[in-house]
Design a binder for these strands. Structure first.
Lengths: 258, 258
DNA sequence: TCGCGGCTGATTGTCAACAATCATTCCTTG
DNA sequence: CAAGGAATGATTGTTGACAATCAGCCGCGA
């Protein structure tokens, strides 16, 4: 983890045009940027499940005050990427099968709504955007690498939800996606063969493009539920196998000593 | 708005039993309690839409430091009850028709999922809890007062979602409910006659008790959507009427002078 | 009259010191 | 030897002071 860039660009009047075009380019407050840095550490797995987040240590690492770190941790807590135990500790949440189930059922519901709304409101412009996103997924899948294919998959789903024009839904979905990413990366072996990805998504995309709201909603739900059940059963197996091991009596996460 | 109670109970060993039974009774941090106080002000309408939340003023009112107020405002922002404009201001969000639409469509989706899960997992115990909540609604409706009836209505819906056993869904639903409460209170005139409330909810409750997941989901959705459409169209009328007034050119909220 | 640039008061953002709380250890006591 | 209970060190919670930023105002010049 490297330092946060403290420079906010020139103080004088230059760059006024660019600031108009993209007003947030350097105006993000420090705690937001710290939150970004910490989020990246957590999603990448460099801060693994159970990792203890000590304010003073983080502040020292990032060359930032403790209060700023605290604000960032608070934000990440609201996004489900950090657990807080008041007066005691911050830590990275464990990856339990129950959580995977929650994430996928919730995702199915939210994406069902998003797909329905997207189908209702489809226009030539939004349809083109959706098609482009779908094409990118097919391309990535053709290459055969898992990482980019997963990202293109996530991007397509996010595009669909974005087309709904539903602000709260979009925001909530993005939070969910971040949590999901952590699970997917932790067990990336369960990625199906990339060749099938296109066919798995085509019906949903077509339904939205055709404006068939009910059909799109049903397809989005079933697609997510089947994907979710796969991940859930896999994680459940891992959990049960771990529960049999003598070192973790009550389903607690396993601590690695040495 | 009165001061936050700074006393946290006796420091000595007494009350250990009570703390065991309810360990959080006095351990809530100050910023959480400030958030509660501010939330109450906002939901009650004493801090109306557009109200400017100045940190120093709030800190003075609550006899608390600015940092604590800041943390509370941040929490409320994550819950959709406060808007933040970085480096500039905090304020209470406006009540737009678009937001009412978002809230109700999202609520229908979430409660649909909750109802489905509740029906799947129904037990004699949870069924009794649901029935009791429903009975309380019918009782409140019989009295005929709008306020308690609305609260009992909200409580029943929350009970259903709570029976799903879906942690993330429950938390998300509670946030949504708070936002909804603000809209419902702002136009409480649209409360239907209380006599019909029981009949409007009975099919959903029965479906859950009978374990009919698909039926329960469909009923929850349609119920919320019809309720939502009522509120949406009403708010839209108010908004359009206001837009015709000369003082608010671009759909901006109306400022009441004097 | 209009637009631009700098000033100004108000407000938010950041920091480092101080206070409160907790988990752990170790000691006492029966 | 077990149970309870005070010291202890580590960690989080809270505060007031200082810094950065912003919207609005004012005057200058074209």
């Amino acid at each position: 983890m490297r330092d946060i860039d403290r420079n906010r660009g020139p103080r004088n009047g230059a760059m006024s045009m660019q600031r108009l075009l993209n007003p947030r380019v350097d105006r993000r407050s420090l705690d937001r940027r710290v939150a970004d840095a910490l989020r990246e550490e957590i999603l990448s797995g460099r801060f693994p499940p159970g990792f203890r987040l000590v304010e003073t240590w983080l502040a020292q690492q990032l060359q930032v005050s403790r209060g700023t770190v605290r604000a960032a941790l608070s934000e990440l807590t609201h996004q489900g990427l950090v657990d807080q135990v008041a007066y005691t500790k911050w830590s990275v949440p464990d990856l339990r099968a129950q959580d995977a189930w929650e994430l996928y059922t919730l995702r199915a519901s939210l994406e069902g709504l998003g797909s329905s709304l997207a189908a209702e409101a489809v226009t030539p412009a939004s349809g083109a955007e959706l098609s482009a996103s779908f094409d990118r997924l097919v391309e990535s899948a053709a290459v055969g690498e898992v990482g980019p294919a997963v990202e293109a998959d996530l991007a397509l789903h996010k595009t669909i939800v974005a087309l709904s024009g539903h602000g709260r839904l979009i925001k909530q979905y993005e939070i969910l996606e971040q949590q999901l990413r952590r699970y997917m990366r932790s067990s990336n072996a369960l990625m199906h063969d990339t060749g099938e990805i296109g066919n798995q998504h085509r019906p949903l995309v077509d339904a939205i493009l055709a404006g068939q709201a009910a059909e799109a909603e049903a397809l989005a739900k079933s697609h997510n539920m089947t994907e979710g059940r796969k991940l859930y059963t896999k994680l459940l197996q891992i959990e049960q196998r771990a529960a049999l091991a003598p070192a973790s009596p009550q389903g607690k996460p396993i601590e690695l000593r040495s």
